[in-house]
């Protein structure tokens, strides 16, 4: 009897405690919850750590979950910031009227192959033909006689949307295996002979071969002038009536302090360094 009473009362207490916590975080504006894109997560996490060191009153929680999660959570207002690799208008089902776009960085994406294929350069047409299944052997593009193994990212992943928008030209990719992160793709391409996939620049290492397109190398400098076409913005979406501390943190991420140090250190490209800009329909200005 006593035990049950203790159990029940402790459960009740726990319930009250949890309820207390959540209601507090809703009203106390100095608690920020940020969810979404895993590609942007390292930057925001690091920025949040630095920010909290300077502003002891603010506590920031950064979570992954994917661009889709970020966009849907921010459009129904349940988080402070929703991170995304893609424009909200590129994704169906998001109410874009309620949210504000903050571009905080640029990420370049490059096709990568297993080094044993012997391919270092492809034309845009060849790349498209590989991912649409017209070219199936590496010897058709000047490589070894070896079957091509395509590794895709999950449908709806920001990296995949950006890659397909710039490479496939509206055609759809053939079905192939899918992996859910840059890291897994990197490991797989390096260990699977004949493999091709795509990752953001910071995931290229000595075990995988980044491929030039039409003899343009995948470098930050080429992204800045749009000579390298496969790149996307990293967005931090907030609601239209975001509170002061949310705005302050977003402003901090966009400030020179973060843009000139952290952004570069973590392999992104600073917004201010871009010589061109893109809109949601992939039109260059």
């Amino acid at each position: 009897m006593k035990k049950i009473l203790i159990l029940v009362s402790s459960l009740l207490l726990a319930g009250v405690f949890i309820a207390g916590c959540s209601s507090k975080s809703a009203s106390d504006s100095s608690k920020l919850t940020i969810v979404g894109s895993t590609a942007l997560q390292p930057l925001v996490e690091q920025a949040a750590n630095n920010y909290q060191d300077e502003n002891s009153g603010t506590s920031i929680t950064v979570q992954g979950g994917g661009s889709g999660t970020g966009l849907s959570q921010i459009s129904n207002g349940s988080v402070s910031v929703g991170n995304s690799d893609v424009f909200a208008s590129q994704v169906s089902g998001v109410n874009t009227k309620k949210i504000v776009d903050n571009k905080v960085a640029v990420v370049g994406i490059t096709p990568v192959v297993n080094p044993d294929t012997g391919v270092k350069n492809l034309t845009m047409q060849q790349l498209q033909d590989i991912f649409t299944g017209k070219i199936t052997n590496w010897n058709q593009v000047g490589g070894k006689d070896e079957e091509i193994t395509i590794i895709n990212r999950a449908k709806g992943s920001g990296t995949r949307i950006t890659f397909e928008q710039n490479v496939l030209d509206g055609k759809s990719a053939i079905k192939a295996q899918e992996q859910d992160s840059n890291g897994t793709v990197q490991k797989l391409v390096s260990s699977t002979s004949g493999a091709i996939s795509y990752v953001s620049f910071s995931y290229v290492n000595s075990k995988i071969q980044a491929v030039s397109i039409d003899n343009v190398k995948p470098t930050d400098a080429n992204v800045k002038t749009n000579a390298w076409k496969i790149w996307s913005y990293e967005h931090m979406y907030t609601t239209k009536n975001a509170d002061a501390s949310t705005k302050k943190f977003v402003k901090y991420v966009k400030s020179d302090k973060v843009q000139k140090t952290l952004v570069k250190k973590l392999g992104y490209i600073a917004i201010k360094d871009m010589k061109v800009s893109k809109d949601a329909n992939n039109q260059i200005k």
Binding site: G65, S67, G68, S72, V91, A154, K155, D180
Partner: peptide, 8 residues
Amino acid sequence: MGIGNTIM
């Protein structure tokens, strides 16, 4: 794989 990349 899909749940994080779709919108409710």
